[in-house]
Write a protein that binds this DNA or RNA. Structure first.
Lengths: 191, 191
DNA sequence: TACATTGTGGAGCGATTAGTCAATCAGACC
DNA sequence: GGTCTGATTGACTAATCGCTCCACAATGTA
């Protein structure tokens, strides 16, 4: 694990515990095992570090989701992999998922370029656009469907971390909520 | 508007713009038209101020929702008022709603007492528990239904503030999404 | 009027922070 | 060996921030 990666990993852990401004760069550096100067050698400012962490995490998530989707063929199955995959990734990467939410409701969000934002939602949007064009989805704005689906994902995830649920029960609940979500957005006219 | 209120209102505006730690107490005081000392006369610490702002906002929202619910009689109608009321309140109180999300994904959440948390979700939970007991809802955990509903509310709200939608279109979309949500959580066996 | 309580102001203190800088160090290439 | 380049260090600083303190004003109370 090279130093920039180590810095990012340490920053993630501290940010979710103490918040952005609650964690001094000096603490990130020392806990990452590098000096103060090294941190600023790789990240010009603290804000730079925060944004870099966000795009790095989103990149990993997207990579994971693409791999999930590619194992399916039909639209519904792809959609299921996207949904279930997201929840499971969130469960296995609690800190990272929490950080994403934290970041999205912070002023730092404005520091992400339009281009980067688009790239991050590309996977979802392409899949949905495709399904919509093939008439698999209800005649609703695709953006709305995307937002509602994302909401359901963070909803079921939030429930699963608050309650303690056995792994079997977890899988079943995730699948149930997926079917509910699918029924919500899918066109009932077609199979 | 007395000074504590003025301080809270100013803090809200600054917090959503610059974040918690991004806004110094001195700036809150000066923009609220009071001195630094006065701020700390009413709020023992900055954290106190943040938490007080949160509970104050949640209190206002709950008061508003109770009024909405009381104008309806049937379970579904109450549920509709709760849903639509939440979205409309969020649209009319953008800063406050944004702050709630910001707060929920911050370390400050731990500073809210268990008792206060329960009081805040009382309205929703009572309504849902009632509907669940009367068999209006699907046989899912009530907490899950509550979380999923809340997710849909913030989902449609997010969509409406990102896109610019005419008021008429807005009302229609909110109602559409409510019906979808109702279909998701309601027991299909009963009317 | 005398006294007590509470509200208000603002200078200032101690601590912390993001970011700098001059100095070393490690390796690549000649 | 000599030279160059980028990595690494950690002491340092200028600025900021949360919060205290104390003087005084306002208001009530007897």
């Amino acid at each position: 694990m090279d130093k920039p990666e180590k810095i990012l990993a340490t920053a993630l852990r501290l940010f979710v515990t103490y918040g952005f401004h609650g964690t001094p760069t000096s603490k990130i550096a020392s806990e990452a095992g590098v000096s103060n100067g090294t941190l600023f050698h790789y990240f010009k400012t603290k804000d730079d570090l925060v944004v870099a962490l966000y795009t790095s995490i989103r990149g990993e998530l997207n990579q994971f989701l693409v791999r999930q989707i590619n194992t399916a063929s039909t639209s519904k199955e792809k959609f299921r992999r996207l949904f279930v995959g997201s929840v499971e990734w969130a469960l296995h990467n609690g800190d990272a998922f929490y950080f994403i939410q934290q970041f999205r409701f912070s002023p730092h969000l404005n520091l992400v370029s339009e281009e980067e934002s688009r790239r991050q939602s590309e996977v979802h949007m392409e899949l949905l656009q495709e399904a919509r064009n093939a008439n698999w989805l209800k005649p609703l704005p695709v953006d709305l469907i995307a937002t509602l689906t994302a909401s359901q994902i963070s909803g079921i995830h939030q429930y699963l971390v608050e309650k303690t649920v056995s792994p079997d029960e977890q899988r079943k609940l995730i699948d149930d909520v997926f079917e509910l979500t699918w029924a919500t957005v899918a066109n009932p006219e077609l199979p």
